[in-house]
Simulated scan of single mutants.
Amino acid sequence: MKEWLIILLRSIGLFFGVLIFIRVMGKKQIARMTPFYFVSYGVIAILTALISANIIKNLGFGLLALGIWILIPIALDYIAMKSKWLHDVLNGRETVLVKDGKIMEENLKQLRITGEELMRELRSKNAFLMSDVEFAMVETTGEINVLLKSDKKPVTPHDLGKKVATQMAPQTVILDGNVLDEPLGDMGLNQGWLRVQLKNMGVSLDNVFVGQVDASGDLYVDLFDDSLQQPQIQVKELLYATLEKCEADLVSFSLETEDEKAKKMYEINGQRLQDVLKNLEPHLLR
């Protein structure tokens, strides 16, 4: 058999074979891959290239070596799920760099991390002042995670004692000018609703590159024609503003009238509407 045909057949077979084995080995991001898996994937890639290019003449020996480097990491991965000791051997352990606001210099030396590198990593986590950092740790992937001091953390609705509505994942309902029925149905919507929203925006479906519906039911669109600026419909915000105006009108009426019975009616209903607004705020405002 001619050598070019051997290379062609080997390459095709190895491509699909390695593709299957890589999927079995699991989805691991390169940026968050531990050294063990990085080396394993590298050796698999090298062996595959050598076998494919017919540099390893003996196909059986090449496949044997490739199989070992594929199957052993898979086996060790499953065992490591049950054994903390093996997991630490394969992936290493986390290392504390900052504890109680103090830098652990010995740990920095052990990992060969300079002070400048530490400061750079802290800045990437929006910690520009060392005095703001309570705790920092190097993960087994080499990534540094930072915990800011309590008085330096961003304020959340929970800190303010405010309730917010549970957020669901947004759904892409239009892509490249085509309506996606499945995600639209998952939101309990249909094409009729979508056409009405686009009509209210003054937008043609053919001009929509991406259309997304958020958890509040608002439609966001990105157009092919970037020179056009289309207002996004904020139905729930408008509803909340209308209710606020009604509540303000009731307060105004109660102050203007001299009829005690009418004044009391306005005050009672104004208070009821205020309670309704308080309950609706987490759902209508984001």
Rank of each mutant, 00 (worst) to 15 (best):
A65D: 09
G62A: 01
L90R: 09
A80E: 07
L66H: 15
L63H: 12
K57H: 08
L90Q: 04
A75M: 12
L59I: 10
H87E: 14
K82I: 15
F61R: 12
G67V: 11
I79M: 07
K84T: 15
K84V: 14
V98W: 04
N107A: 01
L63A: 10
L90I: 06
G67T: 13
L97P: 04
S83T: 11
W69H: 12
R93P: 14
E105G: 09
F61W: 14
L97Q: 02
G92I: 05
A80D: 12
M81Y: 13
I68T: 15
L97A: 01
D100P: 08
F61C: 01
K102Y: 00
V96S: 12
N58I: 03
H87I: 03
L76M: 04
I103R: 07
K84N: 15
D88P: 00
K84Q: 13
K99S: 15
M81I: 15
L66Y: 12
I72K: 01
V96P: 07
E106C: 10
L76D: 05
G62C: 02
E105Y: 02
T95V: 10
K84C: 01
I79L: 08
E105R: 13
V98P: 09
N91C: 11
I79A: 03
K57L: 01
F61G: 11
N91Y: 07
G60H: 08
P73N: 09
I79E: 00
L63M: 06
L97H: 12
I68S: 09
I72Q: 09
D100Q: 10
L71D: 13
L86A: 06
L59E: 11
I74M: 05
V96L: 09
E105Q: 11
V96H: 14
V96G: 14
I103F: 02
K82C: 15
A65G: 14
M81C: 05
E106N: 13
K82F: 11
D100H: 14
W69T: 02
L76F: 13
